[in-house]
Design a protein around this nucleic acid. Structure first.
Length: 571
RNA sequence: CGGGUUGUGGCGCAGUUUGGUAGCGCACUACGCUGGGGGUGUAGUGGCCGCUGGUUCAAAUCCAGUCAACCCGACCA
């Protein structure tokens, strides 16, 4: 492709709206543009990258024996009512009506449709197991789209669904998908971790997430420095022995603490570490009121609380100031476990149960209780773990040290058994001629999100550094001065030779100054680069790669040879 | 949905406090010089100042409403 004709509007300054580096660079490099919040379009270079990522994803799915299909994105409401997810998804779903008033949505995911489809088409265990997938735009009306391509309302996703005769088969399918994902993310060159995930509203038991590690990514993971343990922050088990577990229980004592309400203030007022305090948080959900006790130096993990209560996390609300007194008899900043109204359920993290002689609110304005302890006769519910894991915790598996990293979730896999097949009554006949529900799982890869994650992991101050196998073009030939006929002739020749050898190559034949060409070349991140410059008359060019940037003066034949070899070696 | 910020040529911004002819840089067009890291000269093109209403002789500027975008915050590829 000649750059004099390439639709590649690069931008010199950072766009004001873009915050994350991938969004900035993709916009500046003329690869994507935003239409409205969370909706993006791809220009030629961006589209080529997207298609290459898609191709790698597809190849690995096909290699694993999964079969590609394409289901409609437009789906009728009835399908979703059968599983209750028309209501569950709520405002996250883009809904619309046809001219007759029938309700539809744009698919945010496809469990219902795939299950319904298979139900109508597959009847026998002999046709199982089956894993089918599609690559298609998904639509989710996110409460807050952000970070460019990372969190969109329209995004390209590969979603796969497995149908098995029993649990064992489902687990085998899960493992096959797992392997195909490892191959995919390995090929993409990602630095990533596979972590245990929460199954969210997909329902079910086991899930894992594939997290591309980037600083400032929105997914937090806890992992063990000493073994393979890793999990998302939502479910990572918190193990810590940070607390005073002495046997001696001192006598409780009321202490005047005027206007000292937060753990920070207590810390300062008593000059004691945060772990000597206990915080009591008040929540309501489903008409009940809860007091939750945690060590003062720890944060509540809402997912864990939600699981314990068996209530959707969105339904759990913190009490506001006015409600606290009415509903619990306590006061904001001075809440404690003793003397709450009987209707308040007292829920205690197991660490608090073991803590001795801590300081906690006295349920009286301007008073805290010193030397408080959870006595055996206190009516309460002890929950093993309600805390967010933290750097320095103990690994729940090997006792090693836990660390926290952030990243971007680029893939995830779920086992959900017969949840959807039962809801949609999707069955097959087993060996004995008995109808059985399919055992299923669903598995996603965020194709468009991968484009952003790749940029997050592969860039420098000058621009994007595309890996060779996803680069929009593999090579670029830049003619520095297009008024110099010798250089033009040589550049054209190299360009034609590379094209003839099957290399995807750009020719920078624009009548621009050298600086513009160098800067654009760096920005758009083409991996293999030939600069035709001063030594063109001797047949010598400058060869460099985008990641190394070191220029080597070599012959044109040598350069072509290196480029062709590099391209042939692409996995 | 709460909290915060911002809407002025394609992009980045000033002007709003104190109402009075809409500006700067980049980009773009034409011609020239230059030709190894976003060069330069001359001459140009392009804007109902997000939208609606109000105050006023007069509104980018003041007032009210509304819409949109971005950032922080409770599960999402």
């Amino acid at each position: 492709m000649r750059m004099s004709h390439l639709y590649m509007p690069t931008i010199k300054e950072d766009p004001a709206d873009a915050d994350v580096v991938s969004n900035k660079l993709l916009i500046r490099a003329g690869m994507v543009r935003q239409l409205v919040s969370g909706v993006y379009s791809y220009m030629p270079l961006g589209n080529r990258v997207l298609k290459k990522v898609e191709k790698i994803v597809r190849e690995e799915q096909d290699a694993a024996g999964f079969q590609e299909v394409l289901m409609s994105a437009l789906q009728p409401r009835e399908l979703w009512d059968k599983t209750g997810r028309w209501a569950d998804f709520g405002p996250e779903m883009f809904k619309l009506e046809d001219r007759k008033g029938r309700e539809f949505c744009l698919g945010p995911t496809h469990e219902e449709y795939f299950t319904d489809f298979v139900k109508n088409e597959l009847n026998s265990y002999k046709q199982l197991p089956l894993i089918i997938y599609q690559i298609q735009s998904k639509y989710r009306d996110e409460r807050r789209p952000r970070a460019g391509l990372i969190r969109c309302r329209e995004f390209l996703m590969k979603d796969a669904y497995n149908f098995d005769i029993d649990e064992e088969g489902m687990v085998k399918s899960y493992e096959k998908v797992w392997e195909s994902y490892e191959k995919t993310f390995d090929r993409l060159g990602f630095d990533y971790r596979i972590v245990r995930g929460d199954s969210g509203n997909m329902g079910g038991n086991v899930s894992h997430e594939f997290i591309a590690i980037t600083s400032g990514g929105e997914a937090q993971i806890a992992y063990c420095k000493d073994c393979d343990y890793s999990a998302t922050d939502e479910i990572a088990e918190c193990v810590t022995k940070n607390y005073d577990e002495s046997d001696e229980m001192l006598t409780p004592e009321k202490v005047h603490t005027p206007d000292v309400k937060t753990i920070d203030q207590l810390n300062e007022y008593f000059n004691l570490p945060r772990k000597k305090f206990v915080k009591t948080l008040l929540f309501k959900a489903e008409g009940e009121v809860f007091a939750v006790m945690l060590p003062g130096d720890r944060d509540l993990n809402i997912t864990k609380l939600s699981k314990y209560l068996e209530v959707h996390p969105d339904r759990i609300e913190m009490l506001v100031e006015g409600e606290i007194n009415d509903l619990t008899g306590s006061h904001l900043g001075f809440v404690g476990p003793f003397g709450l109204k009987d209707s308040v359920r007292l829920i205690i993290d197991s660490r608090v149960k073991k803590m001795k002689n801590f300081i906690v609110g006295a349920n009286e304005i301007d008073y805290h209780l010193k030397n408080a302890n959870i006595q055996e006769d206190l009516e309460c519910e002890i929950v093993k773990d309600l805390l967010n894991a933290k750097v320095g915790d103990e690994c729940p598996e090997c006792g090693g040290t836990i660390d926290i990293q952030t990243g971007i979730e680029v893939g995830n896999i779920f086992q959900f058994g017969t949840k959807y097949s039962k809801a949609l009554d999707a069955t097959f006949l087993d060996k004995n001629g008995v109808a059985q529900h399919f055992w299923m799982g669903s598995h996603g890869i965020g194709v468009s999100r991968i484009v952003a994650a790749l940029v997050e992991q592969n860039h420098d101050d000058y621009g994007i550094i595309w890996p060779l196998n996803v680069a929009p073009y593999q090579a670029i030939v830049s003619i520095l001065n297009t008024k110099d006929e010798e250089r033009v002739a040589l550049g054209e020749k190299i360009y034609e030779d590379l094209k003839a050898k099957g290399v995807e190559v750009l020719l920078d034949d624009r009548n621009e100054r050298a600086g513009v060409k160098f800067n654009d070349m760096d920005l758009i991140g083409i991996p293999l680069r030939v600069v035709v410059g001063r030594k063109a008359s001797e047949g010598i060019i400058e060869y460099s790669t985008r990641d190394e940037m070191d220029k080597a003066e070599i012959s044109t034949e040598d350069a072509i040879d290196r480029i062709v070899t590099a391209v042939e070696n692409i996995k």
